[in-house]
């Protein structure tokens, strides 16, 4: 297992390198300068700005310098949020995204697995139709429709929950988190429920479950003790990358609920040509995916003894 961890981390280095270079090249191919605006920016001022951030050197030099800094853990300054370092922005944004994302994933996992099992118990039954109907609806309606709808109903009409997720008055409090977490969890719930149901059905059809049934074990024991563990394997392998994606934040949810997460930077930083911030969040994301995949592999070991022995 330690070997697995070491191996994964070794692979991570070239992965991240490719990621950085690709993002760097794409960003710099883009027309438009980080400092352009409709307002009056005399050429001399723009030159000063470029010089201040070292953007007047050759691209190769800039890339090497960036990689060198990165190796030392320096993510560089933000070109747009000029009072901040990229590292600061990530450090400040990540806890929000992480909380929100983890809460959403826990909710999606709990509700999704439960729904999946419930649906698989009697395939074709009323409950199955209902739950899977909800699940498919969950991946058929874009979340930029779901989120405002939730706000309209629960915050404006009913007044039960705050419309914004954050702020000193409702600073990611339990109440403030409910709506964004639900909106974020819905599509994940749908995937998890469908996956669980499908793999549960497959497992229930296998020979050892038939054997357990033949032994006359109670249905509950069969489902939860014998069926669930193997049925969760595909769910776990889905969870890894999905969690990494969710905890780096969602642009849509963050914009609509006014949350201070990381997700916005993926779009905003690109639009602002905030080169270092773009690279920073991309590297960070890559790192999270690597870690998440590692965790998935470890969980596989927990769930499936065969994998452990290998």
């Amino acid at each position: 297992m330690l070997r697995l961890i070491r191996h994964r981390l070794l692979v991570a280095v070239p992965t991240l390198l490719v990621l950085v270079v690709l993002a760097f090249v794409l960003m710099r191919l883009a027309p438009g300068s980080p400092f352009s605006s409709e307002r009056n920016l005399p050429p001399s001022v723009e030159e000063n700005l470029n010089a201040r951030y070292g953007l007047d050197d050759s691209l190769g030099e800039q890339l090497l310098r960036y990689l060198g800094n990165l190796a030392r853990g320096d993510f560089g300054p933000s070109l747009y949020y000029s009072d901040h370092d990229v590292a600061d922005l990530i450090r400040e944004g990540f806890p929000t995204s992480l909380r929100l994302g983890l809460a959403a994933m826990i909710l999606a996992l709990g509700a999704g697995v439960t729904a999946g099992i419930a649906a698989a118990r009697r395939p074709g039954g009323m409950l199955d139709h209902l739950l899977m109907g909800v699940a498919i609806a969950g991946i058929s309606v874009p979340n930029f429709v779901v989120a405002p709808l939730l706000i309209l109903v629960f915050a404006v009409w009913l007044g039960w929950l705050p419309a914004s997720g954050a702020g000193p008055d409702a600073s990611l409090t339990a109440a403030g988190m409910v709506l964004p977490v639900v909106a974020l969890a819905l599509p994940q719930f749908a995937y998890v429920a469908r996956l669980t149901r499908a793999s549960m059905l497959e497992v229930l059809d296998s020979s050892y479950i038939l054997a357990a049934r033949a032994k006359g074990l109670p249905e509950r024991t069969i489902l939860l003790r014998h069926g669930l563990r193997p049925a969760l394997l595909p769910v776990v392998s889905y969870l890894g990358p999905a969690t990494a994606a969710v905890i780096t934040g969602s642009v849509v949810i963050e914009e609509i609920f006014g949350l201070p997460g990381l997700g916005r930077y993926f779009v905003q930083a690109a639009l602002n040509r905030d080169y270092f911030l773009v690279l920073g969040v991309v590297v960070f994301y890559g790192l999270l995916v690597v870690i998440a995949n590692l965790l998935v592999d470890l969980c596989y070991g927990l769930l499936d003894p065969r994998v452990q022995r290998q």
């Binding site: 009056n40 920016l41 001399s44 001022v45 030159e47 000063n48 010089a51 201040r52 951030y53």
Partner: peptide, 9 residues
């Protein structure tokens, strides 16, 4: 120029 102020103008 070393400041690189946006609104220097």
């Amino acid at each position: 120029p070393a400041t690189g102020a946006y609104y220097a103008a």
